[in-house]
Nucleic acid binder design. Structure first.
Ligand SMILES: [Mn+2]
Ligand SMILES: [Mn+2]
Ligand SMILES: [Zn+2]
Ligand SMILES: [Zn+2]
Lengths: 148, 148
DNA sequence: ATCTAGTTGCGACTTAGTTGCAACTAGAAC
DNA sequence: GTTCTAGTTGCAACTAAGTCGCAACTAGAT
């Protein structure tokens, strides 16, 4: 996960507060889990981790909060090729988008930023007159280590 | 859906037969539904349509066949931003990849082929030494008609 | 015509996410 | 600080989407 040094803990929280989103103990727990995540987390991992900070957090609150964060464009939702199960993964949306490569042999997820990706998005905005809110590029195949 | 005139009915079927995949009446029904689809279909629409050709087709056979087709790289699986429900959508994989734009206001799905997309994939193959089997670019936002 | 590995329908099951509701609470207004 | 209310919560029950074990069936090779 790209963890820019500029990302201050609690940043996500204040960003939402400023937007008029009400802060509760449960939300603070969930937000801090997402902010400090070292990898892509699914809803049930988020729940488990959040419960360690606030035991009252419920599954439905996690889902409702993920919905909220998506609406506010604060997180992205990923399939990561649904390599096992159908669950979705979440990550903090940072300044610049990145794409995800999932190795279908070893399961490794690699992230990559690319100017071409930015150019492609600009092309859609311009040529298709489409106003982009989310752009999700996921690639499946074999990573450098696994290809033959 | 891009329906190249070069796509002959039954093409998908023979493609698989040649690959040593056993053909059953159920598979023929499912394949023909996918081949003649005029839009992106989810598993239950595929089931409904396939049952009109062969009433014995079962839900589990649809899912098993979709799995098979994915493994053979014959179809792509899409989220289309999961605008209602969590279901996945399927489409015949044609020669050239295309990306999907989903309008979050009116729900319209727009497809787009782009040389930049091809370039980006080449960049991943080259710079990341990643061997791509599937590439899925889905964009959410507002279409030309809906953006204010 | 025979044979067998692959495929099927069925039904029960799992997993992921949703929802209605009564109780609770953040934060704005006094 | 007290009051107030719209927004939020946990709970439990629910839906939707997909999976799986198994006995019966069958495609296609021999
Ligand atoms: Mn998905
Ligand atoms: Mn398409
Ligand atoms: Zn790998
Ligand atoms: Zn629209």
């Amino acid at each position: 996960m790209p963890f820019p040094q500029t990302e201050i803990p609690g940043r996500l929280q204040s960003q939402l507060s400023e937007r008029g989103v009400r802060m509760t103990a449960q939300r603070r727990a969930i937000l801090s889990v997402i902010e400090t995540a070292k990898k892509h987390l699914d809803a049930s991992s988020i729940l488990r981790k959040a419960q360690k900070m606030d035991a009252t957090v419920d599954r439905s609150t996690v889902y409702r909060t993920l919905e909220l964060l998506k609406r506010h464009g604060a997180i992205d939702e990923l399939d990561l090729m649904h390599m096992e199960g159908e669950r979705h993964f979440y990550e903090r949306k940072t300044g610049r988008d990145h794409l995800h490569m999932a190795c279908l042999r070893c399961g490794k997820i690699t992230e990559f930023e690319s100017e071409l990706f930015e150019d492609l998005k600009k092309q859609l905005e311009r040529d298709c007159r489409f106003h982009i809110l989310v752009a999700r590029l996921e690639v499946g195949g074999y990573c450098a280590a696994c290809r033959k």
